[in-house]
């Protein structure tokens, strides 16, 4: 019973990691860059949704898309300001630039939103269902299904649609992609918008479980990144699966050994995994012909 409870909530947390990891995946496959402010965008999603729903009294069917659009818009701006200038010069400084942008957003939120953590009420997080002797919130299941569903949708999109293939082609050979009529810039902007919307969605979904605060995203951002790396960054199903595994590992370590060992053990596992599988659990080596 002890483990069952841990596993269920571990899966839901893992699905969050998966959503964030999916965001890292999208920008990576399109532009070989990632948004290290992903955690801050996640916070942004939760903060916007909270402010709209509790501050302005919007109903959630309105607030949710508005918050996602806000995040996507932020992604567009971020790409323009903190990613494109650096990629255009062939510099890797987008890494640090997005970190700085994340700092900026987090501190701005601190002033606009306030310093205190706030509680996000949710009908889905009120009454637990009892399964296997453990309480599961309906929200847990929603998060899990959202994560798996989006991973599946991504897989289908990149495997079977021209647009998906075009997304993948851009980074492999930008010049050739342009010559095929694929607008590389637009694809990259789209990827950043999508990635940010995913992070925002993760933030909104998790908010009723962990509260809304300006610094809620930092740890999640890093763990989502860990999931993306574990999964191998290249395959949407891989990164979501890795997110679930990471969530499960954390929950079982906490349940079996204790909370003090969780971070050490889970990141230790990341190091070990990368030692044996340098391209992640589900990734494969890029072709490097001599």
């Amino acid at each position: 019973m002890l483990l069952a409870a841990a596993l269920v909530s571990g899966l839901a947390i893992g699905a969050m990691y998966g959503l964030l990891a999916l965001g890292y995946h999208v920008t990576w496959v399109v532009s070989r860059s990632v948004n290290f402010a992903q955690g801050s965008v996640m916070m942004l999603g939760a903060v916007i949704a909270f402010s709209l729903m509790l501050g302005w009294g919007w109903p959630w069917p309105l607030a949710l898309p508005a918050a996602l659009a806000g995040c996507a818009g932020f992604g567009v701006v971020l790409e323009r300001v903190a990613v494109r200038p650096f990629r255009a010069r062939g510099s890797e400084s987008w890494l640090m630039a997005t970190v700085a942008a994340g700092m900026l957003v987090e501190n701005a939120a601190l002033f606009v939103f306030g310093k205190e953590p706030r509680g996000m009420p949710s009908a889905l997080a009120r009454h637990p269902l009892m399964l296997f002797g453990a309480g599961i919130l309906p929200l847990h299941l929603v998060i899990l299904l959202t994560g798996l569903g989006l991973a599946g949708a991504f897989l289908v999109a990149t495997r079977a649609t021209p647009y998906g293939k075009a997304l993948l082609a851009v980074v492999q050979n930008p010049r050739a992609a342009q010559l095929m009529g694929i607008d590389a810039t637009r694809m990259t902007v789209f990827a950043y918008a999508l990635s940010s919307a995913l992070a925002g969605l993760a933030g909104i979904l998790i908010a009723p479980l962990i509260n809304v605060s300006a610094d809620m995203g930092f740890v999640f951002g890093i763990k989502g990144f860990a999931a993306a790396i574990l999964g191998g960054l290249e395959t949407p199903s891989g990164v979501v699966l890795a997110g679930l595994l990471l969530g499960l590992a954390e929950a079982s370590i906490t349940a079996l050994i204790g909370s003090g060992a969780t971070v050490m053990a889970s990141f230790g596992l990341v190091i070990l995994t990368l030692y044996f599988r340098p391209h992640g659990l589900f990734g494969r080596a890029e072709i490097r012909k001599v």
């Binding site: 002890l2 841990a6 453990a134 349940a255 909370s259």
Partner: peptide, 17 residues
């Protein structure tokens, strides 16, 4: 005695113990 971290999103494991 059980411990938890500031960012932990779920404490059921410790409480169950």
């Amino acid at each position: 005695a059980e411990s938890f971290e500031t960012g932990d999103a779920d404490m059921t494991a410790q409480l169950a113990r």
